[in-house]
Amino acid sequence: MQYIGRRKPMQYIGITAAFAIASSAVFAADIKGKEAVIQSPGGKYTTALEEAYIKPFEAETGAKIRLVEAGADESVAAVSAQVKAGKVEWDGMSSVDAPYMPKFIKDGVIQKIDVSKIPGLEKLPKAVRSDYGVPVLNSVVTVSYRDADNVVPLKSVKDFFDPNIKGPRAVSSLAGEAQFVCALALLSDGVSVNELTKGIDVNRCLKVVDPIKDQITAYWANGSQMAQLMIDNSVDYCLCWDGRVIQAALANPQWKIQYNGGIQFPGYLTYTTGTKNADVLDAFAVYMLDPKRQAEFTKLVGYSSPNPESVAYLPDNLKPFISVTPEAQAVLTTLPDALFEIMSRQQVELGKAWQAYVGQ
């Protein structure tokens, strides 16, 4: 995702702002009194949605956004059942990671968006755009390290898998994270992205991990655990999500992020097939694409927002951690849709193999 963290000329910003205000006014007239129900994963993400987007959106438009908290697996089952029964209760999902999109599209669980009704999408890099969702954040799986005496700084993700770099490490124990662990392990071992799209070799993946297995001293099972391991300095290195690194670093400034060799993909606001409130979702999507609001969201949740202009509104202490800066984009790998499809097909296989390996 090639984001550019520079301000546009003042005249252009003025035109954009005026257009956004005009659009908001039209939407407010059309959707006042209506309500859309959206799934949210809970925790800091839900809080950030409410504070950065939902409360001001409701105040400005008179429409309502009601959040239903549910985890990824629960959401997949619930939305699929609702569509199959023809009784849509959740109009959308607030953050569907790109690897899940091919299956949702294939199963008819999410419907196409009308891009003509969502000004702001055209500013985003083509790599993050989708006919089936509005990008709301840029997710990265990469490595972090503790900046301390006797801890070797990681110069790339490849260093995490180097057994000669000693130190306690943390990775996920979750079946759903196996696809990311293996993708990073194989890329670090010289496998190209194109080769990965032909299939993820789980045996080779485990052979890459095996030399450092004795240095993996902690396995995280959720985002809170991931962050806490870093905050408490329980490990020196973590293979983890960038948002949790930011969360940890704000509490414990020793922690640094290394984007070199990391993988990135967008998370989307999706519309459930059969929703009767697409107009409310359209208006909310326009609201969410505003760069100032996205900067507020990033401050609260930690993850980078997709609008390139949002970086200009962030404090300097956050900018080194943001994945949409030119510096980060130069060293990150964007995963193609073909690889997401492979991940979707192999997810169960990879998950079972990874959990069996972790349990040995």
Rank of each mutant, 00 (worst) to 15 (best):
P308D: 03
L269Q: 10
G243V: 10
G267D: 14
P306I: 04
N307H: 13
I216K: 02
D236N: 15
Y237H: 06
Q215C: 09
R293D: 02
Q294S: 03
D279V: 15
N252D: 08
V280R: 00
A221E: 09
Y237N: 03
D242A: 13
N277I: 10
G267L: 14
K299P: 08
F265A: 11
V280M: 09
Q225E: 14
L281M: 12
S305L: 01
S304A: 14
V301K: 02
K276S: 15
T275C: 09
E296G: 05
F265I: 10
A227I: 11
Q264I: 15
K292W: 04
V245H: 01
F297C: 01
T270D: 10
S234D: 14
A218Q: 13
P306E: 05
G274E: 03
E309W: 01
K276Q: 14
S310R: 00
K299L: 13
W241A: 13
Y287L: 08
G302V: 07
S305E: 09
I263Q: 02
V311K: 00
A312S: 14
S234M: 09
T272M: 10
K256C: 09
D236M: 06
L289T: 03
S224N: 13
D242P: 05
Q225R: 08
Q215K: 12
V280Y: 03
W220S: 12
N252G: 07
A283V: 13
M226H: 06
Y237K: 04
G261R: 01
Q294A: 01
K256W: 07
K256R: 14
Y303G: 02
T298P: 00
Y268K: 03
L239S: 09
T217H: 12
Q247H: 12
Q254V: 14
Q258D: 07
S234W: 03
Y313H: 08
K292C: 01
D282N: 14
A249I: 09
D316S: 14
Q264V: 15
K299S: 08
N252E: 12
C238V: 15
L269T: 10
E296Y: 01
A283F: 06
Q254D: 15
P266I: 13
W220P: 08
P266T: 12
L229V: 13
Q264E: 13
G302E: 00
L269C: 11
N260L: 07
K299N: 10
L269W: 07
T275F: 06
K276Y: 11
I216C: 06
Q254G: 13
Y219W: 13
A249G: 09
D236K: 08
D316W: 01
S310L: 05
Y259C: 08
P308G: 07
S305N: 06
N222V: 07
G267K: 04
F284V: 14
K256A: 10
C240Q: 07
D282S: 10
Y268R: 01
Q215A: 10
N277G: 05
T298R: 00
N277V: 11
Q215I: 11
E296R: 05
Q228N: 14
A295Y: 00
Q258L: 05
R244L: 14
P253N: 06
N252R: 04
V245I: 15
L269A: 06
A251T: 11
